[in-house]
């Protein structure tokens, strides 16, 4: 490639080709962290309303996921105890003790649904927030941003949003789950508190929330970063 470029340029008396190839070979240093964080945090602040909506969808999805997991764990512990009083409460709450102990397919289905809702909601919100900004991506590419940098910026932003959203989601989910359990089962909720299950579910929700945020934003960011700058610029805002 460079051979015929240089040949051509020398014909025109430029001699600039080798010069440029040399400079192009000197690969750019990564953008300073301060600038990256400035872009990300600044972007989130300027699009506050947008960011809150995106974050809220992560929060609600993870809250639902956590709630479902917690409640399942609690039912299982209570059913396992096989205490007549507890069984009565469970039956009153419409929980099938046998099915819970055997591993209710209904519960699995619920958790699956929660996860799916989480995935679709988060991916959609992230997708929207990236596609809105194709023009900004095109501009950055014109200024010399490499594809990888554009993707990195969006991944950083979505991971950040996802992390905050997930933490809020777990807090919200546990508040709702705890108050619901306290209301239904009183002191038994504390006695059979599914600590391990809750922690496990919190871990899963956290991982799912962040992973889905990153994947949801990563894909459109990758598409945008790989576009020719002119295509990205042409997209209407």
């Amino acid at each position: 490639m460079s051979a015929d470029c240089e040949e051509d340029s020398s014909k025109r008396g430029g001699g600039a080709a080798s010069d440029i190839m040399l400079q192009l070979g000197d690969m750019s240093r990564p953008l300073p962290r301060r600038t990256m964080v400035g872009l990300v945090v600044g972007g989130l602040k300027v699009r506050m309303a947008r960011s809150v909506v995106t974050m809220a969808s992560v929060t609600l999805a993870t809250a639902f996921l956590f709630y479902t997991g917690f409640t399942n764990g609690l039912y299982f512990r209570m059913a396992e105890a096989n205490d007549p009083d507890v069984n009565l409460l469970l039956r009153r709450a419409g929980v099938s003790i046998q099915a819970t102990l055997l591993g209710n397919p209904m519960d699995k289905w619920l958790i699956g649904m929660a996860l799916l809702t989480c995935a679709v909601g988060i991916a959609n919100a992230m997708l929207m927030s990236v596609t809105e900004r194709f023009r900004e991506i095109g501009t950055m590419k014109c200024l010399g941003a490499e594809d990888g940098l554009v993707v990195k910026l969006f991944l950083l932003e979505s991971a950040f949003l996802g992390m905050i959203g997930t933490v809020f989601g777990i807090i919200l989910g546990s508040l709702v789950a705890l108050s619901g359990a306290w209301h239904q089962f009183g002191r038994y909720a504390a006695e059979y508190f599914p600590l391990m299950e809750s922690l496990e579910m919190a871990g899963w929700s956290f991982a799912a929330g962040i992973m889905l945020s990153v994947v949801g934003a990563g894909y459109p960011a990758l598409v945008a970063a790989r576009m020719r700058p002119v295509e990205a610029l042409r997209v209407e805002e």
Partner: peptide
């Protein structure tokens, strides 16, 4: 500047634009 744009790889293009 004596370089054929379409023959550069993506990074080189970004670098040239920059």
């Amino acid at each position: 500047s004596g370089v054929e744009m379409s023959k550069l790889n993506r990074r080189q293009q970004a670098r040239l634009r920059c």
